[in-house]
Write a protein that binds this DNA or RNA. Structure first.
Lengths: 131, 131
DNA sequence: GTTGACCTTATACCTACTCTAAGGTTTACA
DNA sequence: TGTAAACCTTAGAGTAGGTATAAGGTCAAC
């Protein structure tokens, strides 16, 4: 199977697939006589795995760990559980940060007259000397 | 005032201040005889403005627009209001995405035995052919 | 006079791609 | 049979928003 077909099947961009190969995230597939990459079913599944893991928010390095666990028949499910638990914590922290940002911005919006005059409490707040 | 003092006062790293100068986000300050940057009150306030805008989540380019509005005595507060409103929408979209990711991961966690055995529903789910 | 803390520059590195250039190959159609 | 479009290849640069490193000059204190 050619790279464009793999791209269609996995939902990844062909360029992204080449990129994953260049950083040794996936095995290099064999080549046809013309130099084109020829993907095996196994290679395709690896890429599909990556697609899903990335969509779940795992970083490339976390994906590396997940791929290794996937390939390891002696893995302990607790290890996977730990990795994912930490990811959920990261996401929670991120959500809190965004909510705090949103709250501050909403407060600023409520005070801005939203008209043709230059007076704007948002700009004033950003320019304020005090925190 | 030297760059390290400006860093302390604004809360930005000295390297970040030089970086902002290198991308023309702020004006280049004059130099002392020894080559050191000498910051005026105005330069310091610009950097303080940036610090706050970045903390509110505005991108460098959005900061560029905000700085221009700040400097423009003929600005319309509605323009600032629009910029910030859009930012809040971005943040909302981001929060929704993270919540969806968290939900999916939490469902996976609930099904993972979290023990010494290799069977792990998380890995299975990532490896699954179907979406 | 020397140590340590500052300052300067240029450059590389980070994440996770994305794009461009410049070229070779394959496929479809007239 | 010719050619144009749609593939494929590589190397290298660009993106955001810094951070780190190297290699050096300067300043303040003891």
């Amino acid at each position: 199977m050619k790279i464009s077909d793999v791209a269609k099947r996995t939902g990844l961009d062909a360029k992204t697939i080449r990129y994953y190969e260049s950083i040794d995230l996936v095995d290099s597939p064999p080549r046809r006589a013309n130099g084109y990459r020829e993907y095996s079913e196994q290679g395709i599944q690896q890429l599909g795995f990556l697609r899903k893991a990335r969509k779940f928010g795992f970083s490339i390095n976390e994906c590396r760990a997940l791929l290794a666990l996937w390939a390891n028949p002696n893995r302990r499910s607790a290890e996977v559980h730990g990795l994912v638990t930490e990811k959920v914590r990261d996401i929670d922290a991120h959500i809190l940060e965004l909510k705090s940002m949103k709250k501050m911005l909403s407060e600023l919006l409520a005070q801005c007259p939203d008209d043709d005059n230059p007076n704007c409490s948002i700009i004033s707040k950003l320019a304020a000397e005090q925190e």
